[in-house]
Amino acid sequence: MPIEDVISSKGRVRILRILTEIEELNISEIARRAGLNYATANQHLEALENAGLVRCKRFGRIRIFRFNRENSRARIIKKFIEEWETNK
């Protein structure tokens, strides 16, 4: 996914912000906090997962998402957001 696609979507940036703050979360909660409906949140999360930025873990029927710490781009984006948030 080209960088424009990541950063140009309000929904995706919101999700990334939420995941920097809270280590890991399930879809319903991510959707609720981001103010998105479930299907949209799901789409964004799938896109972010394909880009290697987030990872999904399954527990039975429950899916939990978190930043992909193993991915260097994800780490940089996390840092970038944290920097942005703390020095307003």
Binding site: I22, E24, N26, F59, R61, I62, I64
Partner: peptide
């Protein structure tokens, strides 16, 4: 282990499996 694990959406039978998986 997972402070933000959802509070709903799984049964009493599943939760034990989830715990062991974790």
């Amino acid at each position: 282990f997972h402070p933000h694990f959802p509070k709903r959406g799984y049964s009493a039978e599943e939760i034990l499996q989830i715990l062991i998986q974790i």
